[in-house]
Design a protein around this nucleic acid. Structure first.
Length: 603
RNA sequence: GCCGGUGUAGCUCAGAGGUAGAGCAGCUGAUUCGUAAUCAGCAGGUCGGGGGUUCAAAUCCCCCCGCCGGCUCCA
């Protein structure tokens, strides 16, 4: 299965080539889950059935089984499903009085179905029957079991009944189904591809996590730290250019501050326990906001100072249950590219546009082109007055509409302290990742009683925007690694070029070339080992180095280098000119070297 | 945390009661090579940890730990 089901929304929709599609995928998959449940019922004794819906890329069914299912048994279940398909049962709808249905399932001992029924408000309910299998179900279904043709069982997992960890854990079997064999195959290939790109595999040269140091705590290897630093530098430079002030706040703070911010009351479970410093309790910071607000509060502000933008690459620590940790994508210590912007009410819309543009500009530099924008509105539990909410929600919508960008409304999905814009980024194989978030906060400015002096000399509470573009550097780098399969664009590549010698005679000149590139600031490696050229090429390509400079007798004589990328020779160049091409690529954040034609000596 | 799976050399993996293995990486030597693996030799292990069964355990049983896939949660 694709990892991080909730993190990565797989929106895989293959093109329909032949128009013999009979049913919407949801119906097909939902029916497949019935057939799977039926097969499980035939193979195992005393199966209790939970629920079996269609999901984004397939279906599942939850069972309470007397013994665990092994992955090998999926094949057996699949075979039984094939039998049921061959038997060609029609799906029949049965309408029953709710009481009757309860009685029916109670007699069969199907306690989960009874529980579901008891929650249904309607008088009548529908059941679906195919062959011997009868299930409570809203429907609709495919007409006959034989209409299911292309399915695959994928995985087994535990899942709490009704998703509540206090309930019993059931056995969940995942599968998927498509209209055609080709579509199914494509999807399975997609899963394969996602597996191949797993940053924990392709990013082994970037980072490591040691149980001895602690789960969810990342150690950056030189390559990873280089990448991290390049991103950091770019981020800082862009923020300074765009009117942000860079600040820094400490990693621990007195509990007092978290009482004021409300974190201690609302977020205690994700904070690490307190430590005693001279009799006072302190905490490791889970968020950067309190520090930034204190910085705001430490000086008197005029309306002329607004918008005031504080930014910090702030490393925070949050407790996450061990089972949810996942490479760089879910960790316990991470660096938020955080900013808190203090504005007056009339600045809301402009500033949102400002932040939105800035976010898009930054993400595009990293090679992302497709996004999904969500505006999350007022949830059931909220703070602040209705008027502020309305103003903020409207400003968010207006700002996004002004940009002419499509967006979806995530009704009630806002934070309790304000509405937000979430940006999901589409990666190279079509997965969407949530990274950027632009949030309004009605809560903290009041809790900290911060204010500015307006044009009438009166104190006013500013609005606050909390935003992050990468979200967390760790997660962003994890996602980048999967997006590029660790073959990063040139400007991000921790190693940009390797100088290779063909024979030992070439080493002195090659060494000079290496030194020149190194001194100019190119991220250059050298490989003067005494092995075949073929081997050196192979090894350096496998190290994700995008360019190789090969130096043999001819190059020494001509005082040139033969440049090649991962695929083929590009041509011969003078080392000085190559250095400036690299520096220009770095400056312009380029994916590859460009304008080489002018510099090339010969092909 | 919960359910399931899994753990053998730095890495990828084989071995399923009877002397711990291979490839790559590493080291040493030979080779001096023109666009994705030159050859040979050497070294490398409390088979995740602990306990048990057995004449004998990497292998069977129990407990613990880590990792992986999900659930819940999230940047």
């Amino acid at each position: 299965m694709t990892s991080l089901r909730s993190e990565v929304r797989v929106l895989y929709r293959p093109k329909v080539e032949k128009m013999e599609k009979k049913y919407p995928l949801e119906i097909l998959r939902h029916s497949a889950s019935h057939i799977m449940a039926q097969a499980v019922g035939r193979i195992y004794k005393n199966v209790l059935y939970g629920i079996g819906p269609a999901i984004e890329d397939g279906f599942y069914y939850d069972f309470d089984l007397p013994r665990p299912v092994t992955i090998e048994e999926l094949e057996q279940i699949s075979k039984e499903m094939e039998n049921i398909i061959k038997e060609d049962h029609p799906f029949e709808k049965i309408i029953m009085k709710k009481d009757e249905a309860i009685k029916f399932f109670r007699e069969k001992g199907q306690i989960y179905k009874v529980e579901l029924l008891e929650e249904i408000p309607d008088e009548e309910v529908s059941l679906y029957k195919d062959g011997e299998f009868i299930d409570l179900c809203r429907g609709p279904h495919i007409e006959r079991t034989s209409h299911l043709k292309h399915f695959k069982l994928l995985d087994i997992a535990g899942a709490y009944w009704k998703g509540n960890e206090k309930n019993k854990m059931l056995t969940r079997i995942y599968g998927t189904a498509f209209d055609t064999k080709e579509e199914l195959k494509k999807y399975l290939n997609f899963l394969e591809e996602a597996k191949k790109r797993d940053h924990r595999k392709t990013g082994k040269h970037l980072f490591a996590i040691f149980p001895e140091i602690g789960a969810g705590l990342v150690l950056w290897k030189p390559d990873g730290a280089t990448l991290f630093n390049i991103i950091e530098e770019f981020w800082k430079e862009q923020h300074l250019k765009n009117g942000y002030k860079l600040v820094r706040t400490p990693h621990i703070a007195s509990e007092e501050i978290y009482k004021i911010s409300g974190h201690l009351q609302n977020y205690a479970e994700l904070m690490y326990s307190s430590m005693d410093i001279e009799g006072k309790p302190y905490r490791v910071k889970p968020m950067n906001c309190p520090g930034h607000i204190m910085l705001y509060a430490s000086e008197l502000h005029s309306y002329r100072d607004l918008p005031l933008r504080f930014a910090e690459l702030g490393t925070v620590y949050r407790f996450e249950k061990s089972g949810v940790l996942h490479g760089l994508l879910r960790v316990r210590g991470f660096t938020i590219d955080d900013a808190h912007i203090f504005i007056s009410d009339e600045q809301i819309e402009d500033e949102i546009i400002n932040v939105f543009n800035f976010t898009m500009e930054i993400l595009k530099t990293f090679g992302f082109e497709d996004f999904k924008i969500y505006i999350a509105t007022k949830p059931e539990k909220f703070v602040g007055d209705e008027k502020s909410w309305e103003l903020a929600e409207e400003s968010l919508k207006k700002a996004v509409m002004k940009k002419g960008v499509e967006f979806e409304i995530d009704e009630g999905g806002g934070a309790f302290y304000g509405p937000k814009i979430d940006v999901k980024i589409k990666d190279a194989i079509g997965r969407f990742w949530q990274c950027s978030t632009i949030q309004f906060d009605f809560n903290l400015p009041h809790r900290f009683s911060i204010f500015y002096i307006d044009s009438n000399g009166k104190k006013k509470t500013p609005y606050m925007i909390h935003r992050a573009i990468f979200g967390s550097l760790e997660r962003f780098i994890g996602m980048l690694t999967e997006h590029y399969s660790a073959n990063f664009p040139l400007w991000l590549s921790p190693k940009q070029i390797a100088v290779l010698s063909i024979t030992d005679d070439c080493v002195p000149f090659a060494e000079n070339v290496y030194k020149l590139l190194f001194e100019k600031g190119v991220r250059v490696e050298k490989d003067f080992t005494n092995t075949s050229l073929n081997k050196k090429i192979r090894e350096n390509i496998l190290k994700h180095i995008p360019y190789l400079a090969i130096i043999g007798k001819n190059e020494v004589k001509e005082k040139t280098v033969m440049l090649r990328d991962k695929k083929k020779n590009i041509g011969k160049f003078k080392a000085e000119e190559l250095a400036s091409a690299f520096l220009m690529a770095q400056e312009k954040k380029m994916k590859t070297l460009e304008n080489l034609d002018k510099l090339r000596i010969l092909k």
